[in-house]
Design a binder for these strands. Sequence first.
DNA 1: GTCTATAAGAAGATAGAC
DNA 2: GTCTATCTTCTTATAGAC
Lengths: 207, 207
Amino acid sequence: MNTKSRILDASLTLFSEKGYHSVSVAEIADAVGIKAPSLYKHYKSKRDIFDGILSEMQIRYEKQTAALQMNGSNPAADAGIFSSVSEDALIHMGIGLFTYFLHDDYVCRFRKMLTIEQFHDAELAALYTKQYTDDPLSYQSQILSMLSVCGLFRDAKPDIMALHFYAPLYLLLTLCDREPEREPDALCLLEQHIRQFNQIYKKGISQ
Amino acid sequence: MNTKSRILDASLTLFSEKGYHSVSVAEIADAVGIKAPSLYKHYKSKRDIFDGILSEMQIRYEKQTAALQMNGSNPAADAGIFSSVSEDALIHMGIGLFTYFLHDDYVCRFRKMLTIEQFHDAELAALYTKQYTDDPLSYQSQILSMLSVCGLFRDAKPDIMALHFYAPLYLLLTLCDREPEREPDALCLLEQHIRQFNQIYKKGISQ
DNA sequence: GTCTATAAGAAGATAGAC
DNA sequence: GTCTATCTTCTTATAGAC
């Protein structure tokens, strides 16, 4: 890993814990193992480092969602996956999304940084909303809509179903960002939530 | 309103928008309409102002929850309220909690400040979790548990029901903190969510 | 209780040697 | 590409006049 990347990495760690303004360039340099002026050979300013983090996340996020949408645009395959093992598949999807968000090193630090910086400007606010509200909701909505069409699930409004499915995951995620020691708790609640979600919406159980 | 209170108020506004570290005492003084050194006649340091905000919130929060728990410890009265106009009452409770959280000036600015500062130390993290996760969940859980006992609602696990009820409210709340212009959207979704919640859990509709 | 003046230090950033 | 030395500006905080 070259110095430029190490600067980005160290900065993301520090920004995600203390916020952009509370971190000094000397602190970043320290974490990298160089002196502050050396940073300026790699980035022209402190803000430039921050922008570098945003750019890298942009690339990673596009890769990630492109991979997901590939499945999404292939309803036949997804129908096959979900129809065979529906409750387990739902739990798998939920827990999978949750642990990815929570344990992927870059995603997790980036989300914390965005959480801290979201009120600074509208662009960061929009980015947070996109990544942790709108995109997940529309993705879940698509999946649940397909399950409805397949006749597996009740014919409820998909966007409200998506909200029911995703919001608890989101709440537990922000909880674990704050208090990582409560992750086992959160995982247990998440699994119970999905089981109940499945029981409620699955056709033929209660209707 | 005396100067000491005006300092607290101006500081809370600034801290909630930019974070503690990004706000200078000169900026606070400017907002109050005095010069920076004059602040030190009212508070011994910048940190002392921050602590003052925490203390005032502590007092307000205790008053608020004390008022709520009075109802909570009176199951008979609550049962009467909810059994008569169940769906409307649920919607009223949800929208009411939501708009209180979102429009109470002090609560709203304090929550934003906590959002920004939550990763700085464990005490602030715990405070956030208490006010916006644990306390609301346990309160909703109590209410829903009572409705179950009354035979109005299905006999599902109250804490999971509370999560289903509250998590969407929480997600939409954090969304509106970031993008206030989406409040009409959020309110519409919230109402639909509660209607569907009621339809799903209310006895005699689907079981 | 408010002001001006000022101290004492930390911050971001540059110059130039190696 | 990294360093030391340095500049400039900003920041918290104090002293002391009014």
